[in-house]
């Protein structure tokens, strides 16, 4: 049975490695998140066959990075086989950035850094982020950045040249369709840049376009769970008009390569 056949029957893809590279955890100010805990997320993961989620707390991309990072630590420590962590930092508190990066990345299961410049009222290339970029470069870490619009994509283009060993993941692949086109261009020029597929406005043919333009090796599966339900972004990969081998790259093999060596 193909992956698409299994989606039609609502069967989990539990024999395929699925690593969700873009998740959150906890509550959010702007809307109801009825299921927001680690246990709630496990329920959704098991339904689809998602092996691991990579989480940054809502609280961290919001007002309190420490409070949020502690929620992530708790999830990673209680479910080490299912939860991986991003340490989130806020450029408005530069004096604490190095300490917070070290505090979290010392914990087994933390695999990278998350930045949300938009929520923190910042540019992607704010110099206050430099400690994060330098550490990602030094330790060859994934650095997942919320990217929305052409200016953000341009900033990643510059930064990925300045920090060639850091592994940049452009969250939402640029956000709007025009920026997605620029993001795919950057992926084709820079060996250390990836896009994830998370989006709430899921356009028909989007995955097929990404794979046609950039190949399947640089596209990462993500869902934003529990900010969003994971099922739509899961379905669009599983039923895409691409080969099952390409789907396996996107679902898990690419992210597995990115985090190799980070999880003891």
């Amino acid at each position: 049975m193909t992956m698409a056949d299994r989606v039609r029957k609502g069967l989990p893809l539990d024999d395929i490695l699925i690593i969700d590279c873009h998740n959150h955890i906890g509550l959010w100010k702007a809307f109801n998140v009825p299921y927001s805990s680690a246990e709630d997320m496990l329920m959704g993961m098991d339904r689809l066959g998602i092996d691991k989620v990579c989480v940054a707390a809502h609280a961290s991309i919001g007002p309190n990075y420490r409070y949020g990072n502690d929620i992530v630590i708790d999830a990673v420590e209680r479910y080490p086989d299912r939860f991986l962590g991003y340490v989130t930092v806020n450029p408005n508190y530069p004096e604490d950035m190095e300490n917070e990066l070290k505090r979290c990345l010392a914990i087994n299961g933390f695999i990278g850094i998350k930045l949300h410049p938009e929520c923190h009222g910042s540019a992607v290339d704010n110099i206050n982020y430099n400690a994060a970029f330098e550490l990602a470069n030094e330790e060859k870490l994934p650095i997942l950045i919320h990217i929305w619009g052409g200016e953000d994509v341009k900033a990643v283009d510059r930064l990925s040249g300045m920090y060639p060993d850091a592994r940049f993941i452009m969250g939402h692949a640029g956000g709007d369709v025009k920026a997605m086109g620029h993001a795919l261009d950057v992926v084709n020029r820079r060996d250390n840049v990836y896009v994830d597929i998370v989006i709430s406005r899921i356009y028909e043919g989007n995955i097929e376009w990404f794979v046609r333009e950039a190949g399947s090796k640089r596209v990462l599966f993500g869902t934003d769970m529990p900010f969003l339900d994971p099922r739509p972004n899961f379905g669009r990969v599983a039923m895409a008009d691409i080969s099952d081998e390409e789907k396996k790259d996107i679902f898990g093999l690419n992210m597995k390569r990115l985090i190799e060596g980070r999880v003891r």
Binding site: R47, I202, N233, G235, M239
Partner: peptide, 11 residues
């Protein structure tokens, strides 16, 4: 995306 829409209900 039609695939995203059906997956929501199938699962």
């Amino acid at each position: 995306s039609g695939s995203a829409a059906v997956a929501m209900i199938n699962y």
